[in-house]
Write a protein that binds this DNA or RNA. Structure first.
Lengths: 224, 224
DNA sequence: TACAATATGATAATATTATAACAGGAGAGG
DNA sequence: CCTCTCCTGTTATAATATTATCATATTGTA
């Protein structure tokens, strides 16, 4: 059993942030860092960093700290960024096109192999060197290329059916931007939902909480 | 002191999801729902739903449950979606333009009042009925319109300086899509970071964990 | 009107997560 | 070589968050 079996979601969610900060340090030429220094930089406690890292192994050295380059590489390995997951994008509307152009798939563990849409006006256009294909050809494509993951930038009305269809074709990992919650009814799928609207509403709540406190004369509370 | 002072972040993060599900129920014409039914629908425990809602007040009735329309409205109030926060968008590149077109600001507590960029080729174009302005005019605009929030779709190199400039102009709420972490060095700001890359890497981790277990012959673990 | 069924809100119990404490290994300097 | 300081990995403690329990109120029905 690998040591990283059963690592809690909270820890996993922090890994990419560690990875980013270590990448920055690496670029700046920093070669070593202690958990205390990194904690100060990232607004965390040193304890948390040490404990997080020790879920996967002891990467540091007593009296020295952590080697930035080595730790950066280790975390990439832990997240599996080195082997690229073949991926298709469904829905080449505004959002889909931006995701295709904006994301650095290769440095995040993915490789975009195909883009699909149902709109005849869009089909045939080129996006990032890939021709947008008719979604009708999904099945043929999957049999040939066996993509592992799909990015869903499609309306919520069709999200459920599309995801089910993809699973039948052997694709069961989803980066889901549709407003449909793939949380339920998808036993055996690996899902990461992105709800930008939720994020915006959360901000709205925080803003109101902040200014409500201010208007009452009290000190605005520090966000927790 | 309002009852919602000091509500934990975990609860706040669930509010938008409640809001979405209740909205769906409302559209379907469902008038009442019990915490048990809602829990089943949302993949939560009934206890959690009741406890979450009771952070803000007792919206239900014993023996009856919750009135869907009333609860939906209450949550909108709690999040402050009724009064719109004046907002500006910085950076009208791919991502910025998509955010401007794709988000329903008005139903999420915001109103997009201005769009700014530094690229002369973009300045002057129209986006969602707003003319993209030269970022040099930010100060003048803020003095006139007093936007409360800013959406940052700008490169990480300029994120820190831009945010500091905005705060000096009285804008201290940020929806941050730049790869710079506004977590630190921004005491007194309300920040919601969106790191799509982090989300993607998290998915990568989950995929590897899932297939690693499978290859070892064991049952793929249920995502926790 | 009485009674069974239902469902909340509050409280208690449990589980999870984060922080602090500490023992001991490694580096640095004389 | 010895000592002092630094810093990790681990264990212990504290803080949060989630789930279960229970008293009580309302609905629906006969």
């Amino acid at each position: 059993m690998p040591k990283n079996a059963g690592v809690s979601r909270s820890v996993v969610r922090r890994l990419p942030r560690y990875y980013r900060f270590l990448g920055e340090l690496l670029k700046k030429g920093v070669t070593r860092i202690s958990s205390r220094e990194l904690a100060q930089l990232m607004q965390l406690t040193a304890s948390q960093i040490r404990q997080d890292l020790n879920c996967f192994g002891g990467f540091g050295q007593q009296g020295y700290g952590y080697n930035v380059a080595a730790l950066h590489k280790e975390i990439a390995n832990i997240m599996g960024l080195n082997k690229l997951n073949g991926t298709i994008l469904l829905g080449a509307g505004n959002l889909g096109r931006t995701i295709a152009k904006h994301m650095h798939f290769e440095s995040n563990g993915f490789r975009l192999d195909g883009i699909f849409d149902v709109n005849p006006q869009i089909i045939g256009q080129t996006l990032n060197g890939l021709v947008i294909q008719d979604a009708a050809g999904l099945s043929t494509f999957c049999e040939a290329h066996h993509p592992r993951a799909a990015i869903l930038c499609i309306p919520k009305e069709v999200a459920y059916d599309s995801a089910k269809e993809l699973m039948a074709l052997g694709v069961n990992c989803f980066w889901n931007f549709s407003h449909y919650d793939l949380t339920l009814n998808f036993e055996g799928a690996v899902v990461e939902n992105v709800h930008l609207g939720d994020s915006l509403m959360t901000l709205c709540y925080q803003i109101n909480a902040y200014y409500a406190d201010e208007e009452e004369g009290g000190q605005p509370e520090k966000a927790n």
